[in-house]
Design a protein around this nucleic acid. Structure first.
Length: 103
DNA sequence: TTTGCGGCTGTAA
DNA sequence: CTTACAGCCGCAA
């Protein structure tokens, strides 16, 4: 499997996450056809071009947390985008039960 | 060529 | 709640 094809598949599924919902890295990896490749999802997203329209902010880890250091600019950016979509973040966690995307 | 480190995760203690 | 650990695998040093 070419890394590029994988990237394509991953970007594809990420683009499907509806506004107001979130998905986990592992979940997306599985949907894209690469179970167990959660890190590949994070890697792809980290390589997104600046002007990308992909909803990268709707991707969080399996613990319902943002996978960035809480003091980083990236963390604040993602948090703001999520709040802007009406997603609630209590004690640094997002309820997957309420906001988790069910394809 | 080996190593350490990621936007990770499930299991177990 | 916390560590710990085994899988995962591309990438930069």
């Amino acid at each position: 499997m070419q890394i590029q094809a994988m990237q394509q598949a991953i970007w594809q599924v990420v683009s499907l996450i509806p506004s107001g919902k979130v998905a986990t890295y592992g979940q997306l990896a599985k949907l894209a056809g690469f179970p167990g490749q959660a890190r590949a999802v994070g890697r792809c997203l980290s390589q997104l071009p600046e002007q990308s329209q992909l909803p990268w902010h709707r991707v969080i880890n399996a613990q319902g947390r943002i996978s960035f250091p809480a003091d980083s600019a990236a963390y604040r950016e993602q948090k703001q985008r999520l709040l802007a979509e009406g997603i609630e973040i209590a004690r640094g966690r997002i309820s997957l039960r309420l906001y988790g995307w069910q394809p």
